[in-house]
C-alpha cells in the first residue's frame, strides 16, 4: 500500500467525515471493529460508536472544525497533528465528567495528535493524544494557572 493512499485515507477522515459532516464515510474508511488507544488504555470500538461520538461532539460544537497541520506516513502508519476548534452552543458531556456542561457560547481551541495504523485500505487501530486540558479550560470548566 503506497503511503500516499494511506495519507489520503486519514485526510478524508478529517476533511470529509469531520469537517464536511459526511459520517457515512466512516463505513469505507474504518474497519467495522477496531481499537483505539487513549491515556494508555485500549478500547474496542466499531463504526457506529465512532459516529455516535462524533454526533456528541457536533451537538455540543455545531461549528467544530479540524485544521490539519501535519501528516507523516511510513509503512502502514500515518501520524497526524491537527488543531480542533469549536464554539460550545450545545450541552456537552465528556466521558469523565460527572454531569453535562450547559452551553457556554465559548470557543475552545486545542491540539490533537493521532497515529493511525491502516490495513487493507481501512483504519484498523488509532492512538490518540488530545489536549483536553486546553479544551476544558477554554470552556471555563476548570481553572489552571500555567506553571
Amino acid at each position: 500500500m503506497p503511503v500516499s493512499q494511506n495519507k489520503a485515507i486519514v485526510q478524508r477522515y478529517i476533511e470529509a467525515v469531520w469537517n464536511q459532516r459526511q459520517l457515512d464515510g466512516i463505513d469505507t474508511l474504518f474497519e467495522e471493529n477496531y481499537t483505539i488507544h487513549q491515556n494508555g488504555q485500549a478500547l474496542a470500538i466499531n463504526r457506529e460508536m465512532l459516529k455516535q461520538s462524533i454526533r456528541t461532539i457536533l451537538s455540543a460544537f455545531p461549528d467544530f472544525h479540524m485544521a490539519l497541520d501535519s501528516l507523516v506516513a511510513e509503512g502502514d502508519r500515518v501520524a497526524a497533528y491537527w488543531i480542533n476548534s469549536g464554539t460550545q452552543t450545545g450541552e456537552l458531556r465528556l466521558p469523565d465528567m460527572p454531569q453535562s456542561a450547559p452551553p457556554s457560547a465559548r470557543t475552545t481551541t486545542f491540539a490533537e495528535s493521532a497515529l493511525f495504523r491502516i490495513a487493507a485500505d481501512k483504519i484498523a487501530e488509532v492512538w490518540y493524544v488530545s489536549d483536553r486540558l486546553s479544551m476544558v479550560q477554554g470552556l471555563g470548566l476548570i481553572s489552571w494557572a500555567a506553571r
Binding site: 491515556n39 497541520d69 501535519s70 497533528y81 465528556l94 469523565d96 465528567m97 460527572p98 454531569q99 453535562s100 456542561a101 450547559p102 491540539a111 490533537e112 495528535s113 493524544v129 488530545s130 489536549d131 483536553r132 486540558l133 486546553s134 476544558v136 470548566l141 476548570i142 489552571w144
Partner: peptide, 22 residues
C-alpha cells in the same frame, strides 16, 4: 509539535481534581 494530555498528567500528579466539574 508535542501533545501530552496535560489533563491526565496533572490529575495523576494531584495538581487538579480527578473529575472536571462544570
Amino acid at each position: 509539535w508535542l501533545n501530552d494530555d496535560a489533563l491526565s498528567t496533572f490529575q495523576q500528579l494531584g495538581m487538579i481534581p480527578p473529575l472536571p466539574q462544570p
